[in-house]
């Protein structure tokens, strides 16, 4: 009865489909970003030949490890249409609480060695992730129940977390479980393919697959794309967002432990400003701040670009104090590029 005029177009043939897929890949954000990364590496190497070296790569990867975790959480949050400003402060707070627990609850001395140190770090990781999770749940409560917009809700928890970490640590780094043989074996600082970094890569890969292949990931996109349509389709939006902010918080807690292992101490200021790094990685990676758009691979490369630029500039002699300015410029440039791209019709 209805085979007369169809709304449109037939399905494209498989061959054309494949050609389109190849074209899509070549123009895909991540390919473009890899190109940018390569060009940056070449430019810095020309300006400073020592740039192309294992220590530089190791430094970049180490920084990348701490920020990519919160950038991955931020990716879920921003794709869902929100933002999480608390993650940097949570790195500091979770590291401090973990160190405090190791020092005062487990009574570990600074010089603790062997299995006791491993046990301490294991408990520290649980505590650290737990602290992050708790902050994430508080964020979700403020957003879902008190209906505070995510920007303000997470700005408040950011302030509270910063303050609390100073109160608990009395303003100074807390050290514990400091078997330096152990720390340096797992620390990315001394070993580019350290267990800590491998764990980060594992977590990032699993969550990337989860974002793109699972129902949880799909609902995250759906809510960021059109929350009303998501609700009408029967999705429990508030419950989903609770999980999203909990995930972001837990990842910030894990990043807190990563930073603890790097420093060998829990420092209240260790995550300050990291939320900006994460947001920069996310927008450089092509995730739209409006929600609904973005790929995890882009964010992972975006974080690499961010730290390549930072360490490259330092190596060619730019004062480290300019770092935050550079991050801010990169955020603005990435968002401007997204707007232009949209005008181009993509």
């Amino acid at each position: 009865m209805t085979d007369s005029t169809h709304t449109t177009l037939a399905t494209p043939r498989p061959a054309a489909d494949r050609a389109a897929a190849v074209r899509d890949f070549l123009t895909a954000q991540s390919t473009l970003l890899l190109g940018v990364l390569a060009v940056l590496a070449i430019i810095f190497t020309i300006l400073e030949p020592k740039f192309l070296s294992v220590p530089t790569a190791s430094n970049i990867l180490t920084d990348w490890g701490s920020v990519v975790l919160i950038a991955v959480g931020q990716t879920f949050v921003i794709i869902s249409g929100g933002i999480d400003l608390s993650v940097g402060a949570v790195i500091g707070l979770s590291g401090v609480v973990a160190a405090w627990t190791m020092a005062n609850v487990l009574d570990l001395e600074q010089t603790v060695k062997g299995p006791d140190a491993w046990f301490g770090l294991f408990i520290g990781t649980l505590v650290s992730v737990g602290v992050g999770l708790l902050v994430g749940l508080i964020n979700a409560f403020l957003i879902n129940i008190l209906k505070i917009v995510p920007f303000i809700a997470t700005l408040s928890t950011m302030g509270a977390a910063l303050g609390l970490s100073v109160v608990i640590s009395e303003g100074a780094p807390i050290g514990s479980a400091n078997d330096f043989a152990l720390i340096s074996a797992i620390s990315p600082q001394s070993n580019p393919l350290s267990p800590a970094l491998i764990l980060v890569i594992l977590v990032v890969t699993v969550l990337g697959l989860y974002l793109h292949k699972s129902k949880f990931g799909l609902y995250t996109y759906a809510i960021g794309s059109n929350a009303f349509a998501a609700r009408a389709a029967g999705i429990n939006v508030a419950r989903h967002l609770t999980w999203v902010y909990a995930l972001s918080g837990a990842l910030a807690g894990l990043a807190g432990m990563y930073v603890y292992i790097r420093l060998g101490a829990g420092s209240p200021s260790s995550g300050t400003g990291r939320e900006l790094d994460a947001i920069a990685a996310v927008v450089i990676g092509g995730v739209s701040l409006m929600g609904g758009v973005g790929r995890m691979l882009g964010v992972i490369i975006g974080a690499l670009i961010l730290f390549t630029v930072q360490s490259g500039l330092i190596m060619i002699g730019v004062e480290p104090d300019w770092k935050k300015v550079v991050v801010a410029v990169l955020i603005a440039a990435a968002v401007a590029a997204q707007v232009l791209q949209k005008k181009d019709g993509r």
Binding site: Y221, S225, N226, A230, A232, I235
Partner: peptide
């Protein structure tokens, strides 16, 4: 089933993702 006046679809999702939204096959 209801088609609301203004709810529409999730524009960033594909046709099939929209068709199955809330009732996905695993």
């Amino acid at each position: 089933e209801t088609l609301y006046q203004d709810s529409g679809l999730a524009p960033h999702l594909t046709v099939s993702q929209n068709l199955f939204l809330g009732r996905e096959q695993m």
